[in-house]
């Protein structure tokens, strides 16, 4: 027996790029994050072949979850075809043998920046959100040690101070994205910079959501069927963006979150932010046998 026969043949990298100990650590932290919904778990963020701030946190979680039978979808502000999304997707399939897709209903792992797809996610799907700044208390408490203690004490009063001052200054809540939300009645999290429109999609959802910040080295999770409640005043209800009446100028769908495209004449056109939903709608109208999954919003309303 030789030493060579006992060892594995040489490979350029471990399966799924990250080495075994890195994945082990991430898995432990992901399990902890599921156990305490919304609580930020510190982890040793590894180097990945991408600059910090471009989704390295989300990428590490996705790499840890991958297996050869996985089907991955990567979204960047709703689009599958941006350079960032396309590069991450091809990297994921290259290091794991996973299949790439643009279709929300086909995917098993969805990594996303700033959006949650419009089609409902199922219990067998995992959503990974990239987070630039995981700390909801940062605007009111610059000292992170104190902020951590405030999380431990559930001392969240000051977060309403932000909303109070927005209403005082502007007459309404101006927090457009990353709306602080209470998870499972205990921890307040930043749901990554998703619009207000997307926050109700996390509430009592069937799927598991991971949120991971690579630069800040923190990850947290929203397990299936967990309450996610945006912070509100008892007399000022939560309002999503009024996009329900807008129509996509390319696909003709309405009742979804739209991107505003300024026109030469000063007016605005809108197109559906979930680009693949738009593509599917157009294909369906052309007569292709395309199935559009059930969506969270129906006719611009979130059924409760």
């Amino acid at each position: 027996m030789t030493l060579a026969s006992l060892t594995k043949p040489w490979e350029a990298m471990s399966y799924g790029f990250l080495d075994a100990s890195a994945k082990r650590e991430l898995r432990r932290k992901m399990l902890k994050a599921i156990a305490v919904p919304g609580c930020q778990m510190p982890y040793a963020s590894r180097e990945v072949p991408m600059a910090r701030g471009w989704g390295t946190g989300g990428l590490q979680v996705t790499l840890t979850l991958l297996k050869p039978s996985s089907v991955v979808k990567v979204i960047d502000q709703g689009a599958d075809d941006s350079v960032n999304a396309a590069s991450i997707r091809s990297f994921l399939s290259k290091v794991s043998g996973a299949t790439e897709t643009w279709d929300t209903t086909e995917a098993t792992i969805l990594q996303s920046r700033h959006r949650i797809p419009e089609e409902r996610l199922r219990a067998d799907q995992v959503l990974v959100l990239q987070v630039p700044n995981p700390e909801p208390l940062r605007p009111v408490e610059p000292n992170m040690s104190v902020a951590r203690q405030m999380h431990a004490d559930a001392d969240y009063g000051r977060l309403w101070l932000i909303l109070y001052e927005q209403i005082v200054r502007s007459g309404r809540v101006m927090q457009g994205a990353a709306y602080p939300s209470l998870v499972n009645g205990r921890h307040v999290m930043t749901p990554s910079p998703i619009p207000r429109w997307d926050v109700p999609k996390l509430h009592m959802a069937q799927h598991l959501t991971f949120l991971s910040a690579g630069r800040e080295k923190r990850l947290y999770a929203v397990p299936p069927f967990t309450r996610v409640e945006p912070l509100v005043f008892s007399d000022v209800p939560y309002q999503v963006e009024d996009h329900a009446a807008l129509t996509c100028h390319r696909s003709g769908v309405s009742g979804y979150f739209m991107n505003e495209i300024p026109q030469d004449d000063g007016s605005s056109a809108f197109e559906v932010s979930d680009s693949h939903l738009g593509i599917k709608t157009i294909r369906q109208a052309e007569g292709a046998a395309i199935r559009i999954g059930p969506t969270w919003y129906e006719n611009g309303k979130m059924p409760q």
């Binding site: 001392d155 009063g157 000051r158 309403w160 101070l161 109070y164 209403i167 005043f233 008892s234 007399d235 000022v236």
Partner: peptide, 9 residues
């Protein structure tokens, strides 16, 4: 707010 008041008015 610390004392638990959550009504804006």
């Amino acid at each position: 707010l610390i004392a638990g008041e959550r009504s804006f008015a």
